[in-house]
Amino acid sequence: MSYDLFLGCVIPARLPYLEASARKVFEKLGIILKDVDGFSCCPDPTGIELIDHKTWLALGARNLSLCNNNGGVISFCSGCVETLKGVNYFINKDITVKKEVNKYLQKVGKVYEGNTAVKHFAEVLYENLDKVKETVEKPLEGFKVAVHYGCHYLRPSEIIEWDDPFEPVTVDEIVEALGAESVDYDLKLECCGNPLDKSDKDLSLQMIDNKLDAIQKAGANCVVVVCPACYQQYEFNQRELNKKNGTEYNLPIFYLSELVALAFGFKPQELGLNFHRVRPNALFENVGFKV
């Protein structure tokens, strides 16, 4: 099995340790991820799309035109996935959109027909759930995981066409396959608030505060995410909230690929877990997870 790999911007250029864990997991599963030269920003569905829809379409279609793998293209980022799936959706929904986009692409000698399949890395993990289970070497016993799906992994369902938009199961099932417990909590399907960072920092903080509070109340000892925007929102704001509001958040935030990699037996050091702001060492000790 093989996919073209679309890395996007945030993970490779800011959080490369997330990329490291993901690459290791897929290699171990025997799934080939092919690097492709020449990708631009996806572009951001909570950034460029909001200010200029046609630019978003043009850049997205250009990226997709570079893929030629029969398995399609995979990304570690929910935002990139939404953009690439979204571009496919709009191009295939309306022939005039397709024509307009290709008119732009023609200027750079490219053409896109709208046929490249797009997959989120969690989607592929879920499709190989049995293999994931078989590969687990160190079950994550004692990990009480709050699964944060994030918005763009699920919605709009008409574009994403994957898990249920309000009753998703895929990430929970992957987490449980690793031997961890998925802890239900209030506001589980609510937005992390990251996109509001650009327009209203306070609201953005309030949203993540509400989520962290609910997660803590539910008795989870860590959070798992599948999107780098959500990851940053959870990781980078706990200290700020504690300073601002006197809260005592200290929840390790894992990327799904990191949890899978740990269960597969990779060492925290080779995964770059030391780059996390909230270090998971105390959690490992508390639950007796030998590293």
Binding site: P12, Y17, E19, A20, R23, S40, K54, T55, Y104, V108
Partner: peptide
């Protein structure tokens, strides 16, 4: 250090041509 490959991103001129079009 993490053993990750270097990335060859899009040629800037090409992106700028496209953004000029839009």
């Amino acid at each position: 250090k993490l053993g990750l490959p270097s990335i060859n991103t899009a040629p800037v001129e090409e992106i700028q041509t496209l953004l000029k079009e839009t």
